[in-house]
Design a protein around this nucleic acid. Structure first.
Lengths: 193, 193
DNA sequence: CCTACCGATCGGTAGG
DNA sequence: CCTACCGATCGGTAGG
């Protein structure tokens, strides 16, 4: 059984960055949890920021990797949006700490890395904006729908999820996703004749 | 013109706590901005945490103070919810830094103060849960509405607002509030006969 | 992975 | 409000 020290360091960092935040977590906190000396960490990591970066980058690519194929598929807009939100919520539920760090700790990265994150965020948000535009064009969603605001409503509910979601709670990720999308879809759907 | 040093310190702290976060802001950062020595701050403040506390407490009381009267008024549920969200968004728009700090930096307070914040949060969220319950009872909202999830949708959109709202942007606070509540209200309204 | 340590910086205080 | 300073701690490195 290969005990991968590097994985342990990242796992501990994930928990601590998520709970206390990046600046309030010290390399000594991480080392202590693993019964190591602070300096010994640097046999496995480049810097504290490198650890944050790897977590953030991984999370960004995971969200995009899961949602992009759905966004570019040929599916009716309402079904597509439902599938995207569901995929997103499942990733969050399985990677709560990564999602929290991705949403709140990326600002402590250096300038270049921060710029990279911003690009991916815009890309990701575009997926949602576009499905809603598709729905307006196809007549599935009401013509007066403000695509930007509707996308923001979807993204807000997903981004706030890590703050309250409890894996031990009564609601499954699927139920949460369905509840949100059901209300929002009904809220933006075109009048039925 | 009385230059209130204490107010200047709090004003600077508000900006910095909001932008960099509490742990990443040092008392020397605040002092430097005001052309003071770090030690001189302590003629006006008790501790760094006291400054955070005063900001968080003030924000909490402001949100509750503005929304509670509406929540307890005799108004049709849909109108009431609209008015509550509008009041909330106006407070956020006028106090962006306080809202950000209230939402994200309160966890760096000591245990007692953190508990106080948690109580007010629950109280505040209850206002929204209850209006939605009222609407379900009165038949204004669909009987199958999940009040908890609907309230969460409202609160999520409001809580994410400080992350993207731009006072120089094209949307007024009223327009933002109306857009969100319009979609959500339509999403949870009872079928019309 | 440890010992030992670096320069820098932290929140805060004493004494004017 | 400044000077001068406190003990503690920070991220990180050298040299084994």
């Amino acid at each position: 059984m290969a005990i991968d020290r590097k994985e342990q360091i990242y796992s501990t960092a994930r928990t601590m960055f998520s709970e206390r935040g990046y600046p309030a977590t010290t390399v000594r906190d991480i080392a202590r949890e693993l019964n190591m000396q602070a300096g010994s960490l640097y046999a496995h990591i480049g810097s504290k920021e490198d650890v944050l970066w790897e977590i953030v980058e991984r999370a960004a690519l995971q969200f995009i990797g899961v949602v992009a194929p759905i966004a570019s598929s040929q599916t009716p807009p309402a079904d597509k949006l439902r599938a995207m939100v569901r995929a997103h919520v499942l990733v969050v539920a399985d990677n709560l700490d990564d999602a929290t760090i991705f949403l709140h700790e990326w600002k402590f990265l250096g300038e270049e890395r921060r710029a990279w994150v911003n690009e991916r965020r815009n890309l990701y948000e575009g997926f949602y904006r576009r499905v809603i535009d598709e729905g307006i064009d196809s007549g599935d969603f009401a013509a007066h729908t403000d695509a930007k605001m509707a996308a923001l409503l979807v993204l807000s509910s997903m981004n706030w999820l890590p703050q309250w979601y409890n894996p031990a709670g009564p609601l499954s990720p699927e139920e949460i996703a369905d509840s949100f999308t059901q209300t929002i879809l009904k809220g933006i759907q075109a009048p039925q004749y």
